[in-house]
Simulated scan of single mutants.
Amino acid sequence: MNHIADRDAVIDGHRIRFGIHGEGEPVVLIHGTPSSSYIWRGVVPGLSEAGYRAHVFDLLGYGLSERPLDPEVDASITGQVAVLDGLLDEWGLDTFHLVAHDIGGGIAQRFGVRSTERLRSLTLIDVVSFDSYPSERTRQQMAEGLDALERTPDAEHREHFRDWLLSTHSDPANFDPDALDVYLDFISGPIGQPSFFRHQVAHYDPRHTLEISDQLGRLGQVPVQPLWGADDTWQITEWAHRLQAAIPGSDLRLIERCGHFAPEERPREVAEGIVDFLDAQRR
Rank of each mutant, 00 (worst) to 15 (best):
V127S: 06
F96P: 01
Q235D: 05
H241C: 03
S213Y: 06
G106I: 00
V44I: 15
T168W: 14
A179L: 12
E272A: 12
L165G: 11
V127Y: 00
V127E: 04
F96L: 03
R67L: 13
I191C: 06
R118L: 10
V44H: 13
R41S: 03
G22W: 01
A245C: 05
H203P: 04
R114E: 11
E49N: 12
L216W: 11
E90I: 00
H160N: 05
A5D: 14
L146S: 03
D176T: 08
D74S: 06
D131G: 06
H203N: 14
P194G: 10
S48M: 06
T138A: 07
G13N: 11
L278V: 10
R17P: 05
L119G: 04
Y38M: 03
G229T: 05
S76K: 11
R120P: 00
R151F: 01
P153E: 07
G51E: 05
I103E: 05
A82H: 15
Q225W: 04
Q193G: 05
F18P: 02
D232C: 11
D176R: 14
D58V: 03
I236G: 05
I20K: 13
D205N: 12
S188I: 11
E90P: 03
P177A: 08
L47M: 08
R41G: 00
I187R: 00
W234I: 08
P267N: 13
A54I: 06
I236C: 07
P194S: 11
T168M: 12
E156W: 01
I187C: 03
D147N: 10
R137S: 13
D231P: 04
R114M: 04
A173D: 14
F111A: 14
L252T: 07
S195K: 08
L64H: 15
S121E: 00
L98C: 04
P267H: 12
R266K: 14
I11H: 12
D147I: 08
G63E: 14
P71D: 14
G92A: 10
I11Y: 09
H208L: 02
F197L: 15
W91P: 01
G220H: 02
W91S: 02
S250P: 08
E150R: 11
A246C: 06
F130S: 14
